[in-house]
């Protein structure tokens, strides 16, 4: 069983399910616990990997770092220097724990997409991106209120430095964009990228497997095997691309969280 759905391999160029959610929803591991699926296991595993990297990287910490420590340190410096201090500026190091958490959690969640035998990014389930986007929303709104008081919303609705005639219009756009579009786009961006990647990879590689296997079994003709080979080559190309996407989306989510926090903490920029 390569794909979870029936495929009319004789008549189609590529197997596709009628409903895309069969690629994302799994049967329960135990029949008695209907909600516990593979996804839960992978979410916890992503968290454990993030914790494990830091734990094993810092367990025997030395001034001259070992391999694990070097990886943990570069992840830390990447977020601390490259994102927190660089983007937020003064006081940015206060947000390093949160930014490092979301970066590592999303990174490991994404990397499951291109991990052989796992091949399922937990960030392609809306639960993770939505939750993290809402947490980021709370952080930047609370940071804005802490910095500017309730004038934070006032500045959004009545933006300074804009001609008076345009103020209501710009204010409404700004308010909607900050309060609603930001968390929405943050969550959907991550979700959509990983969903698209997962669909492409599973359909291309799954179809390739079915066609080539059918040819070997003698059920399908040579043309189908060739088509399967083409899908496989394309799938491998996309696989490599998805490794980049997995990293880039984790980076962009973290970077945009930092940028949003920065606009709240230093509104003058």
């Amino acid at each position: 069983m390569i794909l979870a759905f029936e495929c009319d391999a004789e008549n189609v160029a590529m197997c596709a399910p009628d409903d895309v959610s069969v690629l994302f929803e799994f049967h329960p591991i135990f029949e008695s616990i209907p909600w516990l699926t593979r996804t839960h296991f992978l979410i916890v595993l992503a968290a454990l990997l993030a914790i494990g990297l830091m734990y094993f990287g810092l367990r025997k910490r030395r001034l001259v770092p070992g391999k694990f420590q070097l990886v943990a340190e570069s992840a830390f410096n990447f977020v601390d220097q490259g994102i927190a201090k660089d983007v937020i500026g003064k006081g940015g190091e206060r947000y390093t724990p949160y930014l490092l958490s979301i970066f590592l959690f999303i990174l490991f969640g994404n990397m499951f997409e291109v991990t052989p035998l796992v091949n399922f990014p937990v960030t392609s389930r809306m639960a993770i991106p939505a939750f993290l986007a809402i947490v980021t929303w709370f952080i930047f709104v609370i940071a804005g209120i802490a910095k500017q008081g309730l004038g934070y919303f006032g500045h959004l609705l009545w933006p300074p430095g804009v001609p008076v005639g345009l103020k209501p219009l710009v204010g409404i756009i700004e308010f909607i964009s900050t309060i609603f579009v930001r968390p929405f786009s943050l969550a959907v961006r991550l979700f959509a990228n990983l969903v698209a990647g997962h669909v492409m990879l599973s359909l291309l590689l799954g179809t390739a497997g079915i066609f080539v296997w059918g040819f070997i079994q003698g059920d399908l003709g040579f043309g189908k095997a060739l088509t399967g080979g083409a899908w496989f080559i394309l799938g491998v190309g996309i696989f490599v691309f998805e490794i980049l996407v997995a990293f880039l989306q984790a980076y962009i989510f973290t970077l945009l969280s930092a940028v949003y926090i920065q606009t709240s903490v230093h509104p003058e920029h």
Partner: peptide, 22 residues
Amino acid sequence: GMVRTTMFLGIAFTEALALIGF
């Protein structure tokens, strides 16, 4: 550095439309 941050912010705004379409 500043350009990159602003670029990502702009991309985030622009991309929102495509995400709504999605």
